[in-house]
């Protein structure tokens, strides 16, 4: 009995130590964001909390413009991806052909193209079409980037809807649009929502294309934070405040969508 108690105690201590260690950098970032710059460069835990750093980020860096870019680009990219993916997933789930399986796998394989392999042509194409440093440009890239994952996730959700329900609707004279919009959509809304959420998280944190294709007017938070790389990064409190605001919303979304994340990121290969 004592043996199993010791074991359980060891597991609890180990589990919490690991969790706190992994979370420590985030905790420290949030803590530092409430310090003054002079307190920030000391590791002291006792300090007078202040919102000065937040105030300064808002005042000096035009933070809201970057945040707005992040929101517009992430939402835009996700909505666009869903708009293409919903008909595709519907068609493959309910009207499969011999090519459906191959198409799904091929879509997955497009995700494997390393972004850096096509950086040069995309950059040049964007330059010619004046899409560099525009929200439209990033929205297009993000929609295409996430399209395979979004199709895959929706496909797995649609697969679980009984065909009979849609067939009944068809018999009642529902056209394709009504079938998808009025029957399938309400049935699979949680699935669509969690797919959108995953896409949102991936867009929000994407840092390769945003760093390379935007500089100022369309730059999202990833690019804004990168501007702290040096020497401004030595203003620890300001860096922390800006980072905390950039990370907080997505961290909370992430906590709620762990399950979908596993499904989406492994293409259903791990359940």
């Amino acid at each position: 009995m004592t043996d199993s108690l010791t074991k359980r105690l060891v597991i609890a201590i180990l589990g919490w130590t690991v969790a706190l260690l992994l979370f420590f950098p985030i905790f420290w970032m949030v803590l530092t964001s409430f310090k003054s710059e002079t307190d920030a460069i000391t590791a002291r835990l006792a300090f007078a909390p202040t919102l000065a750093a937040y105030g300064e980020v808002f005042a000096r860096a035009n933070y809201l413009a970057f945040a707005l870019n992040s929101v517009v680009i992430s939402v835009g990219g996700s909505v666009l991806a869903l708009a293409f993916a919903i008909p595709a997933a519907y068609s493959m789930a309910f009207h499969p052909t011999q090519r459906t399986r191959g198409t799904l796998l091929w879509m997955l394989s497009t995700k494997m193209l390393p972004p850096v392999g096509v950086l040069v042509p995309i950059y040049l194409l964007f330059r010619t079409t004046h899409l560099l440093d525009t929200r439209t440009g990033l929205i297009l890239i993000y929609a295409l980037m996430n399209l395979p994952i979004v199709v895959w996730m929706l496909f797995t959700f649609y697969k679980e809807v009984p065909h009979e329900i849609l067939e009944a609707g068809r018999m009642d004279g529902a056209n394709t649009w009504a079938e998808v919009w009025h029957l399938l959509m309400p049935l699979t809304l949680p699935g669509v929502a969690s797919t959108g959420l995953l896409s949102l998280i991936l867009c929000w944190n994407e840092a390769f294309w945003s760093l390379n294709l935007t500089s100022s007017s369309a730059a999202p938070l990833t690019t804004f934070i990168a501007s702290f790389s040096s020497p401004e990064g030595l203003f620890f409190a300001k860096l922390s405040a800006a980072s905390t605001m950039a990370v907080a919303p997505i961290l909370i979304f992430g906590w709620f969508s762990q399950k979908q994340l596993v499904q989406g990121l492994t293409f259903g290969a791990v359940k």
Binding site: V18, F23, G233, L251, G254
Partner: peptide, 29 residues
Amino acid sequence: FPGRNVARVLAISPFFVMPTVAALIWKNL
């Protein structure tokens, strides 16, 4: 173990931190 769900959430959190933030927090702080 007690509080396992909270511990899990804390341990998983770093994955949701954007790469530029992760890198600068580690480098500087």
